[in-house]
């Protein structure tokens, strides 16, 4: 009797639950998407209308002057190129170092393995901090050099652990024994068998590291002083956060765009710049999403 009553109630409570759940998820999706969508719309709309709050959902007074200006803005493109170079070279080195370390440290036994692991894991929890690290880079004469953007973050202990757990769990030890009996050396075994079998984790690492390089500004802020070496994020910082525009680029802008005030132009440039700088990652990640998620899962398997 009691049971029956309960069951009738249950149907309703589940229906209410799902109604609320749909509302919650819809709310989250809208909150996430709308700011991004608004930036895109504002970047092609008349900035006066945007400033007056007339643009909310659809672009109004469509124009592409913002993007035209961005394409002519030299500082942006030279730094864009720098970022591409830092990202490609940096990620390449990251992946090679991390995979090699993971290979060696996932071997079943060799003398010193425990010690090396301890030495690496310790750095996850304690470090010299900003100032001694900066002074170290200075002592190594790396300040304001290309390598200051590449070497300090060459291996991430966290990613190393992800790659190592992957190799431990998915490449059986018997394979190594068989390869060694067949006369392969460790390096041959690594290059010809382990690496080809590890493509998923190579994908994860490439993406983690590449996003990191693309978005980072900390190393540049600390170690670089000459503008021609600046990555994109440093130029973005000047424009978006400090509201500083290259005077040469802005001056030529005012001559030709007399119809648009400098303030409006700045605003328009900012919206366009957000789109141009974030686009590569935003376009790429849905395709690579499965790798990212896999990475998180391998990482959580460790425990």
């Amino acid at each position: 009797m009691k049971q029956k009553k309960h069951r009738v109630k249950m149907g309703i409570s589940d229906r209410i639950y799902y109604a609320i759940a749909v509302l919650i998820v819809a709310f989250v999706v809208v909150i996430t998407i709308y700011p991004l969508y608004f930036v895109c719309v504002a970047s092609v709309s008349d900035p006066t209308l945007v400033l007056n709050g007339k643009v909310l959902f659809l672009p109004k007074g469509i124009q592409l002057q913002g993007y035209q200006r961005i394409f002519q803005y030299k500082n942006i493109w030279s730094s864009y190129l720098n970022t591409v170079i830092y990202t490609v070279v940096g990620t390449g080195l990251n992946v090679v170092m991390t995979m090699t370390a993971a290979f060696v440290l996932s071997r079943r036994r060799f003398y010193g393995k425990q010690l090396i692991m301890l030495m690496i894991v310790f750095t996850m929890y304690f470090g010299g901090g900003m100032i001694p690290t900066y002074l170290n880079i200075r002592n190594l004469h790396l300040l304001d050099s290309f390598w200051a953007m590449i070497l300090p973050g060459a291996v991430s202990a966290y990613n190393l652990i992800i790659a190592r757990s992957f190799m431990q769990s998915s490449i059986p030890h018997e394979m190594q024994e068989a390869a060694i009996i067949d006369g392969a050396s460790y390096i041959q075994f690594y290059l010809k068998i382990v690496l080809p079998l590890s493509t998923p984790v190579v994908g994860v690492l490439t993406l983690y590291y590449a996003v990191g390089h693309w978005n980072s500004y900390m190393d540049a802020l600390l170690y670089l002083s000459s503008r021609e070496k600046y990555p994109l994020q440093m130029i973005l910082r000047e424009i978006l956060i400090q509201n500083q525009f290259s005077t040469a680029d802005l001056a030529s802008m005012n001559d030709t765009e007399a119809m648009m005030s400098a303030e409006n132009m700045k605003q328009l440039l900012k919206y366009g710049l957000i789109v141009v700088s974030s686009l590569p990652m935003i376009i790429l990640y849905p395709f690579l999403q499965k790798f990212f998620v896999k990475g998180v899962m391998i990482g959580s398997l460790k425990d």
């Binding site: 996430t32 998407i33 991004l36 996003v211 693309w214 978005n215 980072s216 500004y217 994020q233 973005l236 910082r237 978006l240 956060i241 957000i274 700088s277 974030s278 990652m281 935003i282 990640y285 999403q289 990212f292």
Partner: peptide, 10 residues
Amino acid sequence: YAPHFISTIV
């Protein structure tokens, strides 16, 4: 996920 891939500066 999308916002996760946007840089702190942006």
